[in-house]
Amino acid sequence: MNETLEKLEQEIQNAELDSSKKLELEALVAKLKAEQESEKEGLVNDITKMIEDFESSHPQVTGLLSRVSNFLSNSGI
């Protein structure tokens, strides 16, 4: 989606439109970007909450998954 919005911004800049239309379209793209960022933050918060809930009910499994994840990350995977 970021790539699409960036392409749209470039098209708006290159388009032969009057300045008020360009400003209106640029504001719309900025609004879309802000909404996308807000959705990301909400998703991160939801995932964090799920992890915390899982960790409290299954601490040993969570610890094991953390160690496996670190091993894979350190291995370049």
Score class of each variant (00 low, 15 high):
Thr48Trp: 01
Val44Pro: 00
Ile47Met: 05
Ser69Met: 07
Thr62Pro: 00
Leu43Tyr: 06
Arg67Lys: 10
Glu52Phe: 09
Glu39Ser: 07
Lys33Gln: 15
Glu11Gly: 08
Glu55Thr: 14
Gln13Pro: 00
Ser75Ile: 01
Met50Arg: 09
Leu25Ile: 03
His58Cys: 02
Glu37Tyr: 04
Ile77Leu: 15
Glu55Asp: 14
Ser38Gly: 04
Val68Gly: 07
Ile47Glu: 05
Lys7Met: 09
Glu16Pro: 01
Ile77Arg: 13
Glu55Trp: 04
Ser66Tyr: 11
Ser56Ala: 08
Gln10Ile: 08
Gly63Gln: 13
Asp18Trp: 03
Gln10Cys: 10
Asn70Glu: 15
Glu52Met: 07
Leu43Ser: 08
His58Leu: 01
Met50Val: 01
Val68His: 05
Glu6Asn: 14
Ser73Ile: 03
Asp18Pro: 13
Asn14Asp: 10
Ser20Arg: 05
Ser66Ile: 07
Glu26Lys: 15
Leu23Arg: 14
Ile51Ala: 12
Lys31Met: 06
Glu6Pro: 00
Glu11Trp: 04
Ser57Glu: 15
Asn74Ala: 10
Leu8Glu: 10
Lys40Gln: 12
Leu65Lys: 03
Lys7Asn: 14
Leu23Cys: 06
Pro59Tyr: 10
Lys33Ala: 08
Pro59Met: 09
Ser66Asp: 15
Ser38Met: 12
Ile51Leu: 14
Lys31His: 09
Val68Glu: 15
Met50Pro: 00
Gly63Cys: 01
Lys33Trp: 06
Met1Ser: 10
Ala27Gly: 08
Ser75Phe: 04
Asn70Cys: 00
Glu24Asn: 13
Ile47Asn: 03
Gly76Trp: 11
Glu11Cys: 13
Glu24Met: 10
Lys49Gln: 08
Ile77His: 10
Glu55Ile: 00
Glu24Gln: 12
Asp53Val: 07
Thr48Glu: 07
Asn70Phe: 03
Ile77Gly: 06
Glu37Thr: 11
Leu32Lys: 15
Ser19Tyr: 02
Glu52Arg: 09
Leu17Glu: 04
Lys31Phe: 08
Leu23Asn: 12
Glu11Asp: 01
Glu41Ile: 13
Lys22Asn: 01
Leu5Pro: 05
Ser57Phe: 14
Met1His: 02
Leu8Met: 11
Asn45Pro: 06
Leu25Tyr: 13
Glu37Met: 13
Glu9Ile: 07
Glu26Ile: 09
Lys33Met: 11
Glu26Ala: 09
Val44Arg: 15
Lys33Tyr: 06
Leu28Pro: 01
Glu3Ser: 07
Lys21Ala: 15
Leu5Tyr: 04
Gly42Ala: 14
Thr48Pro: 00
Thr62Cys: 02
Pro59Gly: 06
Arg67Gln: 14
Glu3Phe: 03
Ile51Val: 15
Glu41His: 07
Ala27Leu: 12
Leu65Tyr: 06
Lys31Tyr: 02
Met50Gly: 03
Glu24Phe: 09
